[in-house]
Design a protein around this nucleic acid. Structure first.
Lengths: 110, 110
DNA sequence: TATACTTACTTACATAAAGTAACTTAATTA
DNA sequence: TAATTAAGTTACTTTATGTAAGTAAGTATA
């Protein structure tokens, strides 16, 4: 990969958002704090990748993991302020899709 | 991959934008019509993947390919109206990155 | 005229990322 | 005791991406 002329902050942002599932995970968490298995089933991601992504997003300061020491232990993931700040991005994507994406007739073969 | 409860248009939009390089290619083309080798060098993508992406984006109606029958032939890629409509999305990403992404001290080892 | 160079790709191969399924650990319920 | 749930992890397969070289058509250079 060669050097580019593009703003490195912007590139960094894209390298996060470009990753498969990142957008959907953030979108899902905009609904509020959630458990691992809930995110998994809501967006249809595999546990293997969800685990990986949540770690990445935590490292980026976008997601926070909270352990509630009840019995049984409860773990919840939520957006940080930085993560919540992505809402306008997701809103614009939604807006674009409303205007420009025609509904898919085939909802992905099973 | 399981079924989800998420709006299919939005999912479709994310499946396009989630793909590596899509954002940068659209961003680059927001500067105007450009040739293959120019995009290639500006964003640092490999020719192999650029070729693949441009075909995908053409199929999605986001990019258009124009052949100018000069000699030697000139081929230019540009955004369609649908593609140009992605500008606010990119702007929000830029805005987010300005506020929340701290500059990387290591600009990727060579 | 032969050689090298440019553009817009494609092909072959190597490595990285994602999907699938089974397993783990601890606690809970039937 | 056996089965279930949550939150992962591990091993293995498939897909995506990167790298480098090749191609075809035309251009410039020696």
């Amino acid at each position: 990969m060669a050097d580019t002329n593009i703003c490195p902050k912007f590139e960094k942002a894209l390298s996060i958002l470009n990753k498969r599932w990142t957008g959907l995970i953030v979108f899902q968490l905009l609904n509020g704090s959630q458990r691992f298995c809930n995110i998994e089933s809501e967006i249809g991601i595999s546990g293997r990748v969800l685990s990986e992504r949540l770690k990445d997003l935590e490292k980026e300061g976008i997601v926070q993991r909270k352990v509630y020491d009840e019995t049984p232990v409860r773990i919840e993931y939520s957006l940080t302020e930085k993560g919540t700040a992505l809402e306008p991005v997701l809103n614009e994507i939604q807006n674009w899709s409303d205007h420009w994406v025609e509904p898919q007739e085939e909802p992905v073969a099973k």
